[in-house]
């Protein structure tokens, strides 16, 4: 019995080195997969970074804690796929920092809610969910429609996202403020916005969005970007 506890207990240096080695193994097992996380993101058509308005809407979503009641992850279970649509894939949250998969469903999953309802409905429902769904447990968010969206830091936020890996182009960043106005003004020419952010949904307004406008633009985009028609489980595999 050369190596008994006694040896480590009597030699503090060895105790320290031994502890470090043991913890390091655990650390490596946890950290190494994270370095290779890119390889787990599927290559799919259609996924794009969020438009400035959607991205700000997402900030409101996070700030209001919508994720405490709503998940954004259609799990690979039959009843979920039948109810919500195609199961979620990693590529769909690759521009999320942090992702909004959530862990609790007091309300339904929102991963595929984009386009399911009209924007009118989204506004009415956010203002007063019980008016439309009497038994709803969702709080009222009418104040979001009265709060102007803080926009002065739009560019700074996009640059920050670029630092953590969202591939915004220089063009997207320089046109951020005009894109944000365009997406909240149905009378504006949407061509350039849609070229930069295909499928972006324009919300009613006059170019000075409220927090609710941003949130609705975000919700109406959820789950609509990836084109699932030309892919399947086999091709999604890495």
């Amino acid at each position: 019995m050369a190596f008994r506890n006694e040896f480590f207990e009597k030699n503090a240096i060895f105790l320290l080195v031994g502890t470090l080695l043991t913890v390091a193994v655990g650390g490596i097992v946890e950290v190494v997969p994270v370095f290779t996380v890119e390889t787990t993101v599927e290559k799919v058509q259609g996924m794009r970074p969020y438009s400035p308005l959607e991205s700000r809407g997402r900030d409101i979503y996070v700030r209001e804690g919508c994720y405490t009641c709503h998940s954004q992850q259609v799990r690979t279970l039959r009843d979920e796929v039948e109810r919500y649509g195609h199961y979620s894939i990693a590529a769909e949250s690759m521009y999320d920092h942090p992702f909004q998969w959530g862990s609790k469903r007091i309300g339904p999953d929102l991963a595929r809610v984009g386009g399911k309802y009209s924007s009118d409905w989204q506004y009415a429902h956010l203002k007063n969910p019980q008016e439309l769904v009497p038994e709803s447990l969702m709080p009222r968010y009418a104040f979001l429609a009265e709060t102007p969206l803080q926009t002065y830091d739009t560019v700074a936020r996009m640059k920050t996202l670029r630092m953590v890996g969202v591939p915004y182009t220089d063009e997207q960043i320089t046109s951020a403020e005009s894109d944000l106005r365009t997406q909240s003004d149905p009378t504006a020419d949407q061509t350039k916005l849609l070229a930069r952010y295909p499928k972006a949904v324009t919300v009613p307004g006059n170019g000075t969005p409220t927090e609710m406008d941003a949130l609705v633009a975000y919700l109406q985009m959820l789950g609509t970007l990836v084109n699932f028609a030309d892919t399947n489980t086999e091709r999604l595999r890495q």
Binding site: V32, T36, T39, T76, R78, Y87, T233, R237, Q238
Partner: peptide
């Protein structure tokens, strides 16, 4: 998961195929 991908396992099982 490691460099170029992840260990698929001998059975080749995925929850996606199952669903």
């Amino acid at each position: 998961s490691y460099g170029p991908g992840y260990l698929h396992g001998v059975l080749g099982y995925t929850t996606r195929q199952e669903v």
